[in-house]
Design a binder for these strands. Structure first.
Length: 197
DNA sequence: GAGAAGATCTCCT
DNA sequence: GGAGATCTTCTCA
């Protein structure tokens, strides 16, 4: 199986948020840094929408913070939370229709030494099995907020040539207080990098 | 301008 | 299994 170097096109992201979230599983997140590149397979995601989703940042309408969710699809939406952590999202759906997919966990397949250095942990799994962890491992912060993921620059997402078969598990979202009952969390079955079962 | 809450992680028991 | 860390953003006065 070979990883393509072409970023996914804008049209991939300009669909319903839940569909995009599901299809992002098994895709590869590529991060280019001065020290080298890191490639990470996406193994866990959550979908967040707009006015009908009480857990979403866009629930109460447009603010300066959630603006990327209302803009065009295929951009990074990075926000800072709990005084410690960044979370990486990908914007989806049509312009003015808020939507984003939170990338919750990845499996690093290349550039492991760089990621490990960013994280200061020994355990392989602990490097990237959570949204705050993977952002730190890939050295992603608010400087990447609003970055276009279809340009193939320092951060983008691409697919693979071969067929990577896996089973997708659907479950309820994690770490939120409102909208818990909506089953918009998706992950790859039996992947040990998934944050919680 | 102040206060509260938050899509989490880590350490401690 | 539980609580503290720690700061940005939003809301209200």
């Amino acid at each position: 199986m070979n990883i393509k170097t072409e970023p996914l096109p804008r049209s991939f992201y300009e669909r319903g948020t839940v569909v995009v979230a599901r299809e992002l599983l098994g895709k590869y997140l590529v991060r280019r840094t001065p020290e080298g590149h890191i490639v990470a397979k996406i193994v866990e995601v959550e979908a967040y929408k707009g006015p009908k989703d009480p857990a979403s940042h866009a629930f109460k309408g447009l603010t300066e913070r959630n603006r990327p969710m209302f803009e065009e699809a295929g951009f990074a939406y990075v926000y800072f939370i709990y005084g410690n952590h960044y979370c990486l999202n990908v914007t989806t759906d049509q312009k003015r229709v808020p939507g984003a997919v939170l990338i919750r966990a990845v499996e690093i397949v290349d550039g492991l030494e760089i990621a490990r250095k960013n994280r200061h942990v020994i355990s392989l799994i602990d490097i990237s099995n959570g949204p705050g962890k993977l952002a730190k491992a890939l050295n992603i912060d608010k400087a990447h907020n609003g970055l276009d993921l279809t340009k193939g620059n320092e951060l983008f997402i691409c697919s693979t040539d071969g067929v990577d078969s896996f089973k997708v598990i659907t479950s309820k979202r994690v770490g939120i207080k409102a909208g818990r009952e909506i089953p918009w969390r998706f992950y790859i079955e039996n992947n040990k990098y998934v944050s919680k079962l």
